[in-house]
């Protein structure tokens, strides 16, 4: 077994997990906006929490991909296979980070909308979920690639 291959496999797992960076930033941005709204009107906690949680999914997708790569580690024999793990992690890593940040910004704006018109919560969620779709595509890309390792 090639040590470098295994190290690269580890790198793949790490990269996939790092999709969570986007979720940290995204939920962070949305959380700041939500706190401002709840300071004025504590009754809006639940709706703003829903919006804040939306950019959190990218972290989960990253974790799932990391987990799938982890299961492949025992089969790694060559450096080539190690590189495959790294490349397979890239879609969710990059796509997850960027989409979560932008989704966080959409969520923050939607939280501002909920502050003025709570009845429009559903529309705010829809805007944020449109961004989510590209995280799903990234996740799916990584998933399909992991299957090929």
């Amino acid at each position: 077994m090639e040590i470098l291959g295994l190290v690269l496999g580890f790198l793949g797992v790490t990269l996939a997990i790092l999709a969570g960076i986007g979720s940290m930033i995204g939920t962070g941005i949305a959380g700041e906006a939500a706190s401002g709204v709840v300071a004025e009107d504590p009754g809006k906690f639940v709706p703003t929490l829903v919006l804040q949680a939306l950019p959190g999914t990218q972290g989960i997708y990253g974790f799932v991909v990391a987990f799938l790569i982890l299961q492949k580690l025992s089969q790694i024999q060559t450096v080539y296979q190690g590189w495959l793990c790294v490349v397979a992690a890239l879609p969710i890593c990059i796509g997850g980070i960027l989409s979560a940040i932008y989704q966080g910004r959409v969520s923050a704006a939607a939280i501002g909308m909920v502050a003025k018109r709570q009845e429009e919560l559903a529309k705010g969620i829809i805007y944020a979920v449109v961004v989510e779709f590209y995280a799903i595509l990234s996740f799916l890309g990584s998933f399909l690639l992991v299957q090929m390792i």
């Binding site: 989960i60 997708y61 987990f67 799938l68 779709f133 799903i136 595509l137 996740f139 799916l140 998933f143």
Partner: peptide, 19 residues
């Protein structure tokens, strides 16, 4: 094609939970 993507992603996450 999003129909396929969404169907697959929720099935896979469910599989990982079951794992």
């Amino acid at each position: 094609s999003r129909l396929m993507a969404l169907a697959l992603s929720s099935a896979i996450i469910g599989q990982v939970v079951n794992y």
